[in-house]
Design a protein around this nucleic acid. Structure first.
Lengths: 202, 202
DNA sequence: GACAAACACGAGTAAATGCTCGTATTTTTC
DNA sequence: GAAAAATACGAGCATTTACTCGTGTTTGTC
């Protein structure tokens, strides 16, 4: 197997450029229809150069997903101080939702990698990783709020909550800014409604 | 524009065969990755024959979506007698959900046309039609239950409910039959949770 | 400054895929 | 039963697209 070359500064910059470009093209065309040539063009670079840094389209998507994952983690880190988990449910949900929506608005490519339920086969790998990261984050918060929730219930609940979230995210980011709050509040209601029974357990 | 030829009995049968085949291939590969040649092969027919009946891949998908739409309408027709709308919320939701899940299990292609949130561009046309049909059905039921709900709230609510439903449908039909009930009940809880506030309005 | 490693180019390739078209067979029409 | 219309075939065209490769340039190392 060919070793990863030792990247120099110029190379690092190129990789960032390429990821930026990929985000734009993924956002415009969706993962499946996005062509590597278009991504290279968007980055102002030849197709050969793209492949100097990423083995294939999937690797590119994976790297982009990784970037999103860490941006998301940072955003959540910022939004959560200890004690947040004990807030009233609507506020807790709001604090989970906001950062995600913002990351999404700032990184239009996000939805393309996160959103679509069933992309063909292996193409889903980066998607699944992202979904898993989000689900994990949700699980952490729920675990903090409901310490004695059985772990299988915890897993199910976070998975469902994440899927509900993913389902409405598309509408939220697509919608004009004026109407956005309405949909966010709708998403909030849905999640609060789903989670309320947990709050009312003995 | 070339006129639609007057179909003879043999042709009608072929069209059914082709739609069946398309459902199978869409289910296995998803819409985007499904090839028309594979569909023709699955139907035991040459590619040329396929195009004798459907102008292109999209027209094929549209026809299939239309078929699902009517199957769905029939299933719902069967599940609703007048008065259903006044049932307790969990039961009402259950009656909405069951037929959809069943149509899905019987027609594996359904999810491929209904599920994925943002397929590229025009490919979404058949998808949107299906989603719209389902949303419309949901709206009817909600309108019957909440006659004085303003029409914009009605539209929003049915759209959100449908999206929640679509999001969890994938998990439900993919999951082994033994665990299916658990996920159906989870979906039920999510929808009931979302709709409960409407029940409690003055 | 010389040598190697990393970077860059972009025309080109192989494979996939939606769809066509010339031809041949079956069914309907009269 | 003959002309017309519908059905059927399948090799292959045109296009797209992920990716390569030969060649040349820039950067780091000693």
């Amino acid at each position: 197997m060919p070793e990863e070359p030792r990247r120099q500064a110029r190379g690092q910059r190129r990789m960032v450029q390429l990821l930026d470009a990929a985000a734009v093209v993924f956002a415009e065309a969706g993962y499946a229809k996005a062509t590597t040539n278009a991504i290279a063009r968007q980055a102002g670079v030849s197709p050969g150069t793209l492949y100097q840094f990423f083995a294939n389209k999937e690797a590119l998507a994976e790297a982009l997903a990784e970037r999103y994952r860490s941006e998301l983690a940072a955003a959540h880190e910022k939004a959560f101080d200890p004690g947040t988990a004990q807030l009233p449910l609507p506020e807790l949900v709001d604090r989970m939702i906001r950062p995600m929506v913002e990351v999404n608005l700032e990184n239009p490519g996000f939805k393309a990698l996160f959103g679509s339920g069933d992309l063909p086969d292996k193409l889903t790998a980066p998607t699944r990783a992202l979904q898993k990261a989000v689900t994990g984050r949700v699980a952490e918060v729920l675990a903090a709020r409901y310490p004695d929730l059985p772990s299988d219930r915890l897993a199910t609940t976070s998975a469902v909550a994440t899927q509900i979230f993913a389902a409405l995210l598309g509408t939220i980011v697509t919608t004009p800014a004026t109407e956005r709050e309405r949909w966010i509040s709708e998403l909030n209601q849905a999640l609060v409604g789903y989670l309320t029974p947990l709050d009312q357990r003995v």
